[in-house]
Every structure is written in C-alpha cells, then in structure tokens.
Amino acid sequence: MAGIVGIQASTALDTVYAKGVAGDAVAVMDRFAELRSAIVVMHQAPMISAVLLLVSISERVGH
C-alpha cells in the first residue's frame, strides 16, 4: 500500500513540465513550495514500503 501511495504522489509532481513554469527558475521553486507535502509523501512512502518489506521477509525467515 505504501508503494502505491508513493507512486501516486510522484504523479502529482508536474512542476518541470507545467506550462508557464518550465524554464523559469523562480516559478519552479514557487511550484515546488506548493507541492511540499506531495514531495515529502513521495519520498517517505517508498522508504516505509521498503522497511515493511524487510520486516515481512525477516518474519518469514524466522529471525
């Protein structure tokens, strides 16, 4: 589930390709500031997914 959340959050990040923003460094920074929550979720969800995967594997192995 956390992996799906990370993928969905990454699809919300269109800053570099958005019309009116592309090529304008200040506009890109402003757009990224607006998307701060999505950026945090995009990075945290895959890390949580990876940790849960390792926990799941270690439980199956019996450690």
Rank of each mutant, 00 (worst) to 15 (best):
M1C: 03
A2R: 02
I4K: 07
I4F: 07
G6H: 00
G6F: 03
I7W: 03
Q8C: 08
A9K: 01
S10K: 06
L13K: 01
D14C: 10
D14L: 12
D14Q: 14
D14S: 15
T15S: 06
T15W: 02
T15Q: 06
V16M: 06
A18V: 11
A18L: 10
A18R: 14
A18Q: 15
K19R: 14
K19P: 13
G20E: 08
V21N: 06
V21S: 03
V21E: 09
A22F: 15
A22W: 12
G23T: 14
A25P: 06
A25K: 14
V26W: 11
A27T: 03
V28C: 02
M29N: 12
M29E: 11
D30C: 02
R31H: 09
R31M: 05
R31T: 10
F32M: 04
A33S: 11
A33E: 01
A33P: 01
L35A: 06
L35D: 05
R36I: 02
S37H: 09
S37C: 00
A38I: 01
A38H: 09
A38E: 07
I39K: 00
I39F: 01
V40A: 09
V41M: 03
H43L: 12
H43I: 03
Q44V: 11
M47A: 11
I48C: 04
I48N: 00
S49F: 07
S49H: 06
A50T: 09
V51E: 03
V51P: 03
V51Q: 08
L52I: 11
L53Q: 06
L54P: 04
S56H: 13
S56L: 15
S56R: 10
I57E: 02
I57W: 08
S58V: 05
E59I: 11
E59K: 15
R60T: 05
R60D: 13
V61N: 07
V61F: 13
G62P: 09
G62C: 04
